[in-house]
Write a protein that binds this DNA or RNA. Structure first.
Lengths: 225, 225
DNA sequence: CTGCATCCGCTTCGATACTG
DNA sequence: CAGTATCGAAGCGGATGCAG
């Protein structure tokens, strides 16, 4: 246990576990679903292999990550978050909401990744009761680069984004990277109207509008009223 | 700007600003009100002076902390959070709520500090509408060690803890460190009944019960219904 | 006494190379 | 594909020194 603040404080304890460099970004990658070592490396540009393996081991020892062997055909290992780690979604959501104000336009050397923005917009957000229980599919740039397709489920009004396509979505939303960036940075304003112009919707348009409003909408989960 | 992830991601951007060691703990100290350099050092056991001055400068450059000169009699400087940093309360609240589960009993070398626990229990929590607009005073161990007295205001049901006593509190709650620890770790259970037995209340008991329920209560801000 | 800057030993981080 | 091994660089912790 490398980092110790020696303070009996919930914040300090949390930071001892997930406060080291890269750790919360590893959690971010896993929050959208299980990933293999190489997938994680691809989603964390600049991380070195020893860092990644070290962080994964630390998270495993903390009981936040479990490794699971895939069945023979794949013959590989995936890492996934445990039940104890699902509470980190709230932390990531808070950081994402606060970080949105700090984001600004993409910097020259910034990598842009649909997964990061989809997660940042969706996790922790809520939709009104009438949109509860729905499932949406999100395709960024046509969803071509194999991994730029996501789906969002609303469990009791609470949005849960994941990688991959949805089995039977209520609506499919297709949008370009620029639209995604504009949506994520809040450049479109809180309303979903201008967003709708940049997004192609197939299926139930009303529910799609609810999703867009949530994705573009108020940072704080329940502080708009 | 030492740490750069080079990712166009709100979470990564947030962590570039506040993700380094000690930074969020400095914010934690300032969230309860302005502090001088030496006060901060006392509230961050183990931090070295160069670390603290470095972090304060970084936070100042990021526009999250402002230094203000006290009037001549004191002839000193205080650091305080800016408007841009108030959003960090949500991040700290999320970390505190998640960290509570990781807290367990105090470790042998852990320092215990009333401020950390009061902040961890109060920040981000809410009280029902009938307790909105109230102010409570909290005295830990009689509030004697000069700085173990706090007050909590509910702005629209949203709790805002601060250092020092309240001007005209609706109720004054006095409790020992052990009661505070039990409350903060959730050892008392979600109800405020057993908590009330360990806390001496002066003033409006009904509102005090509301506060205790919030302090001991559900981690997630709005997920109990 | 407060608010730092500087120096030093140690730990962590990052990049590359290499193995099951 | 999934890591471990190695090594220079950077960050960190602690002590000391010094100006306002």
């Amino acid at each position: 246990m490398p980092v110790r603040y020696a303070q009996f404080c919930p914040v300090a304890r949390a930071l001892e576990v997930v406060g080291e460099r890269w750790t919360l970004l590893v959690a971010r990658e896993l929050l959208l679903g299980p990933r293999r070592f190489t997938d994680l490396q691809a989603g964390l540009p600049g991380i070195s292999t020893n860092m990644l393996s070290g962080r994964l081991r630390a998270l495993e020892e903390a009981g936040l990550v479990a490794r699971r062997a895939l069945p023979p055909p794949a013959a590989s290992t995936v890492y996934e978050l445990t039940e104890a780690a699902t509470g980190l979604a709230v932390v990531l959501a808070a950081l994402a909401d606060w970080g949105r104000d700090q984001l600004g336009p993409p910097r020259p050397d910034d990598e842009v990744n649909g997964a990061w923005l989809v997660l940042g917009m969706a996790v922790g957000r809520t939709v009104p009761p009438e949109a509860s229980g729905r499932t949406w599919e999100l395709r960024v740039d046509g969803g071509l680069p194999a991994g730029e397709t996501f789906h969002v489920r609303s469990d009791g009004g609470h949005l849960r984004p994941q990688r991959g396509s949805a089995a039977d979505p209520d609506a499919v939303l297709t949008l370009g990277t620029e639209a995604l960036v504009a949506l994520a940075t809040g450049t479109l304003g809180p309303g979903a109207d201008r967003a709708a112009a940049l997004v192609t919707v197939t299926g139930d348009e009303a529910s799609a509008r609810h999703l867009l409003a949530a994705l573009a909408g108020a940072p704080t989960p329940s502080a708009d009223a």
